[in-house]
């Protein structure tokens, strides 16, 4: 079953007076439970594609279906609700809330989703990512790899259908990168988590089930 399907997806930006076509007609299908890597050179439209699928940005034209539902024309509030309940994000620069502890960072999206027992659930997610002994640490007291693991735990807070990761290992050393990818694989195998990951690294990309290559805003055949 397609969990993500895009049809002739296009996105253009104006850079001064010049129109930049970030996506120029992308047709992609991603199956439920699939671990997909998106690769390509800088500026090829990988992150733009992720932003569209994650409903952070609106396409210029084309369709996006998530679990068969057309989400292209959703209002800003509906898109926020959809992101909250169905999509987990992991960014390259960790992007944790500096004033919140590890457990509070994970609790926050649960609180947004009005979830009961959020402290207990957050603790379980920290255990899952191997940071059960760091719950009261601030991000500044954690290593880069640990911060990214907290980000992954946060992305899982509301049991999302899709996990979107934009260069999740781009700011980590080799050892931490390996640990993060192993964690992704574990989540994919044990929980059936659909993961769409943007990466520059061939080695990291090869860990996924499938690689989609982008070039100049289209999928490279």
């Amino acid at each position: 079953m397609d969990i993500i399907k895009t049809g002739n997806l296009k996105k253009s930006y104006m850079l001064g007076k010049v129109e930049v076509k970030a996506l120029n007609g992308v047709d992609v299908s991603i199956q439920k439970g699939e671990f997909v890597a998106i690769m390509g050179p800088s500026g090829c439209g990988k992150s733009t594609f992720l932003n569209m699928v994650g409903m952070l940005d609106i396409p210029t034209s084309g369709e996006i279906y998530v679990e068969g539902n057309d989400v292209t024309g959703m209002s800003s509030n509906k898109r926020a609700e959809y992101r909250l309940r169905h999509i987990g994000f992991i960014f390259q620069f960790f992007n944790l809330f500096n004033e919140l502890t590890a457990i509070e960072n994970i609790m926050f999206p649960m609180m947004l989703n009005r979830m009961p027992n959020y402290r207990k659930n957050a603790q379980e997610l920290l255990n899952l990512v191997g940071l059960g002994d760091r719950i009261h640490h601030l991000p500044s007291e954690l290593s880069g790899g640990q911060q990214q693991r907290v980000t992954i735990a946060r992305s899982l807070a509301n049991s999302p259908k899709i996990l979107l990761a934009d260069e999740p290992t781009g700011n980590l050393d080799t050892k931490s990168s390996k640990e993060i990818i192993e964690l992704f694989r574990k989540l994919n195998l044990e929980r059936g988590q659909t993961i769409v990951m943007v990466t520059h690294s061939q080695e990291i990309g090869e860990k996924a089930d499938r690689i989609i290559h982008f070039r100049d805003g289209i999928i490279e055949k």
């Binding site: 609700e81 959809y82 994000f89 992007n95 500096n98 999206p109």
Partner: peptide
């Protein structure tokens, strides 16, 4: 700004 962006990405509405 970045943290506000992250909040929104996580699903926080403008009103929140």
């Amino acid at each position: 700004k970045r943290q506000i962006g992250i909040m929104k990405a996580l699903g926080a509405k403008d009103s929140f």
